[in-house]
Design a protein around this nucleic acid. Structure first.
Lengths: 227, 227, 227, 227
DNA sequence: GACTAAACGAGACGGTACGTCGAGTCTTTGT
DNA sequence: ACAAAGACTCGACGTACCGTCTCGTTTAGTC
């Protein structure tokens, strides 16, 4: 997501530290003031760096935010294999909760659905992340079905959504606290639903049929006569 | 949220129409460009009105957004009473889905969790709305318990959250489409979970213990050394 | 200078009083804040009248100022005839001094050379006033010459200017006080100069030769490349 | 009047030229439109510079005007010593005339008595300039008295005022042309008056007694009930 | 250990938008 | 009919930040 992060040859020295400071400052400002109120000058000042130093590496305010976030929103959840669905799901849910508690995680998640989420790169990353995670749930479900713990037609994506939705809902939508019990509760609900066959494939009309277009997504679209 | 929207006596003339136009333009800009990129001049131009006319009634860009949104985020969901939990919940879920599909609903909901959600009034409203809706679920649950459709200790708030979370998740977090099946699916999941006793009161540590403070909420807080 | 000041028929009632109040308020604002800082709203408020009431009678801020001043800058100096030049001149000088001491006189005179003086009507009036006054000096000089008090070729205009200049200079240019002695001093100087033949006609190249053009007058002119 | 005009080290580059252009444009606008109609945007445009560039160096419209004028209103008149009063005074008068003919001089002088003259700095400068010039006349008078050309009690300040008044009067008050003969005429009048003892010290009550307050000066004062 | 080239601090600049004030115009309401 | 009230357009104010640019000044890696 950066010009040449893999090339450790040239900018090893002084620049490296400054870059890290700027990225950290960006996250901090994102947390304190939000994307809309984030200013390059504020970030620079917070990083103890001059404005031009920021602009030297990042063309725009947007790319700065994208870069600062991109370090974190790829922090991936592992695919658990504990031998039982319940503990598998618990591991998944706890990993989710942990990834979004703490200042950095919170800042990143909040930013992802805030106005920063309208940036194409962020929107793309968000979609990719959830697609990845849904796919990550597939082996878990497969194993559970083999073990006879879940119905054969259980939809992994739907299971993952059911697991993740309450966590995100509490954190980003309803401002309810996200505490330990939340993960446990999500597991219970998802498991009960899955066992009851409520997460069977094909029953949801919306399923995964969102191939292609995705017009009118989060980023809004053309002019709409709302009035 | 307004001085006297029901009183058509005084400001009937030119001002009334202009106000409505500005509010509509604000929502449209919110949808098209997002809160961060919304400019008063853009709104004014879109409303066919001069910038100072906007500032006459709204002190700041923020209050303009708050006012434009406040007409819609109180659009309340009715308390259904159809004689059966399933249809009650279906009515609830469908009302939710309907309230956030269509350009206006989408713009409002997106704005609520975007940077506009950091505005104290918006954050307050968001919390109030969900608290209201949770309370709205109480009679539904009570009747279901009476009818023996749900366990006696079913938590209405948790039920509502389980119903609402997937809808909001798809719309705002994962950018999945929100279609007809989504409401139905949410009902199935919530019902299965409730029947399985997964939504029993007291089992969730986070329960409703968020009395008072709610410090460190969505609006971010003091400076945090993220780096 | 007004639409119909001589017609006392119609606007006797409420309007009459309001007009006077506005005019007085205009002078007061002119004195307190100066022409550049004079605002119609300030005048209206000071006059206890609504802005539109001012605009009903005066098309522009400028015409308001012109009208308010025009009552006073025509307040003419009488042509004295006391039987001796010295006392004639003294009467003239004292009339001048009196016309510009006191708040109103001071406000009017200051306004005349301030930016209000760029208004064509004001510039015109100023020129007319001084031309009139120079002409007013003619009989005084004629009689003095007859009496043998002054040289035959004494220029009345020049005499008047010599009399008036120090008074205006102190009031408007050097901010020196304009007190009783000033008039007396001006008389002595003018008399001494006239008797010494320093005010003889034709000696001043600039004399009254300013017929016509008057390009580059007080009002400034076209664009000049000063840099 | 500037930070370090003699130090050509630092701001040599782009800034220097822009500053000069803005100052020149300010004078030009002052001449063309007057102080009251002078706008920062107009000045910026005329200087071929952006508005914010003007505001970067000058906090307000007023300080811009003050700075632009301050380069010129200190342009001092030399103290002549030609060996004879008449030629000394002639040199003085001609220097005066020259300093206020030509577009820049005219603009500056006009601005000094216009509404810009209400600015404290301008008023102060105006007073200081005339005080300086009066003092400058002292050695001229002293030498003339030694030579027996003028009465011993001749007041230098009064002499200077008598010399300057007609020039300023023609330029700023009566809009008469200021031509070559004017200086000559002023010298004749001043000389005649001085020789006749009309400029003796102590005879003018107002003399230099303006110690202290000087309340109600050119800058206007508190609210006065003119009506 | 001196040299070179990059990265940096500093800050002016053209721009866009902010939120405010005042000029004039126009419409509505009350008398 | 006219005056009070006030909403509206328009233009300028003075401010903050954006992103670009050009200077000197470190300072890191090389010779």
């Amino acid at each position: 997501m950066e010009s040449a992060p893999a090339d450790p040859v040239r900018p090893v020295g002084r620049g490296r530290k400054a870059q890290a400071a700027v990225r950290a400052a960006t996250l901090a400002e994102l947390f304190d003031r939000g994307y809309a109120e984030l200013t390059v000058e504020g970030v620079a000042q917070r990083a103890g760096v001059h404005k031009t130093t920021v602009y030297r590496r990042w063309k725009t305010r947007e790319s700065l935010v994208v870069d600062a976030l991109s370090e974190h929103f790829a922090a991936d959840i592992p695919t658990p294999d504990t031998g039982a669905v319940e503990s598998d799901l618990r591991a998944l849910a706890q990993a989710l909760v942990e990834s979004m508690t703490g200042p950095v995680g919170r800042a990143v998640q909040t930013a992802m659905v805030s106005d920063a989420g309208r940036l194409p790169e962020i929107a793309e990353a968000r979609r990719r992340v959830f697609a990845d995670r849904c796919r990550r749930a597939e082996p878990v479900v497969a194993r559970a079905v083999e073990r006879g713990e879940l119905p054969a037609d259980t939809d992994p994506s739907e299971l993952f959504r059911t697991l993740a939705a309450p966590v995100y809902f509490r954190l980003l939508i309803s401002d309810d606290p996200v505490e330990d019990g939340v993960a446990e509760q999500a597991v219970r609900v998802a498991l009960a639903a899955a066992r009851a066959g409520a997460l069977a494939q094909g029953r949801s009309a919306a399923d995964d049929g969102r191939a292609g277009g995705q017009e009118g997504g989060h980023t809004g679209g053309g002019s709409v006569p709302l009035g």
